[in-house]
């Protein structure tokens, strides 16, 4: 028996974890992105379906090869990470894109976008933007990735639109162009535009999964949207066109839901959202950049580390 036998040490350790794991996050992201993508495939037809399958296959194969030969990290077959990036790449491509090109873009996204930076969590620019961007630079005439195409002339229910405009929009001083209506209602797809462009309803539907599962802090898309729309309006543009005729809704929801590509704190996210949104608005207004929202996110992503260093505690 010891006189001073043991003062009790009270070990602190969490015994319960939040249910989301890394795999869980990418599984839910995949599920969420499938909603607008499903509508995009429905709109784009069999060609779109083949293109999506090719992109996903390319991403999975590239992830497998990278983990097998480039890194010591084992291939995460249940991870859904590669599936998510494949789907994200496909969503940004035109439905008319060749399946081979889509597969190549997705593979480039995974190899260069993820593993070139050191693996998951080490990248700052969304990998889904990297592959198409590299492909666009290598093959400038390909035009696989476009925003703001021309809608095909399929007649819309004119009475319904007239009613909407007279009763709801005109009193608010809002005017929606015919192209935007066509995209918004999912009746047509823009020629050369991306697979999910203009599918506002399905995009919002898919975003319910993102917000419901707490995958995306609302401050980020809202600050992006606010800066984007307000700046476009200030410069004399039509904010509705800028939103509906670009990939902005998809980008600010489904790409920014990938945790590594956004700042860590809420303040940082607000700053980043405003910065990316402002960049996108400037690109849209100038008309010099074919892909305003995508390019804005691509460039803004390189500043995430700076934003983090400003908004988190340093040494």
């Amino acid at each position: 028996m010891s006189e001073n036998a043991g003062a009790t040490t009270f070990r602190v350790f969490p015994h319960s974890y939040r249910m989301l794991t890394v795999q869980g996050i990418y599984r839910r992201l995949t599920l969420a992105i499938l909603v607008p993508l499903g509508f995009g495939i429905f709109r784009g037809g069999p060609d779109a379906l083949v293109m999506v399958i090719a992109a996903v296959a390319g991403a999975i194969l590239a992830d497998f090869l990278a983990t097998r030969f480039v890194t010591s990290v084992p291939f995460d077959s249940a991870g859904f990470r590669a599936v998510y990036f494949g789907l994200a790449v496909a969503a940004l491509l035109s439905p008319q894109t060749s399946p081979l090109v889509a597969a190549f873009a997705a593979a480039l996204s995974v190899i260069v976008g993820i593993w070139f930076f050191g693996g998951p969590g080490r990248y700052r620019v969304h990998p889904a933007l990297v592959g198409p961007a590299l492909l666009g630079m290598a093959l400038p005439g390909m035009q696989a990735l476009r925003e703001g195409g021309t809608a095909r002339a399929i007649p819309l229910p004119a009475e319904f639109i007239a009613w909407m405009e007279q009763v709801i929009l005109e009193p608010l001083g809002v005017r929606v162009t015919a192209d935007a209506w066509a995209l918004l209602l999912g009746a047509v797809g823009p020629e050369g535009g991306s697979l999910v462009m203009g599918l506002i309803g399905p995009i919002l539907l898919g975003s319910l999964i993102l917000f419901g599962e707490d995958l995306l802090p609302p401050v980020l898309p809202f600050s992006f949207l606010l800066a984007y729309a307000v700046l476009v309006r200030l410069f004399g543009g039509n904010p509705l066109d800028a939103v509906f005729l670009t990939n902005a809704p998809f980008v600010m929801l489904f790409l920014l839901a990938d945790p590594p590509v956004r700042p860590a704190t809420h303040t940082g996210m607000a700053l980043f959202g405003v910065f990316a949104g402002a960049l996108g608005a400037l690109f849209w207004i100038t008309g010099e950049i074919a892909l305003p929202a995508v390019t804005a996110l691509f460039l803004a992503g390189t500043f995430v580390a700076v934003v983090d260093s400003l908004t988190t505690r340093r040494l």
């Binding site: 319960s16 249910m19 794991t21 996050i25 969590g121 802090p217 590594p260 860590a264 704190t265």
Partner: peptide, 29 residues
């Protein structure tokens, strides 16, 4: 606690999601 309540999983490399930074009540990183 049951297994499902604990929610254990194998350790992965950090993905820089910032969840810990946002959750921390005293603002450290």
């Amino acid at each position: 606690l049951t297994e499902s309540e604990i929610g254990t999983a194998p350790e992965h490399p950090c993905i820089r999601c910032g969840a810990c930074v946002r959750a921390c009540p005293v603002g450290i990183n």
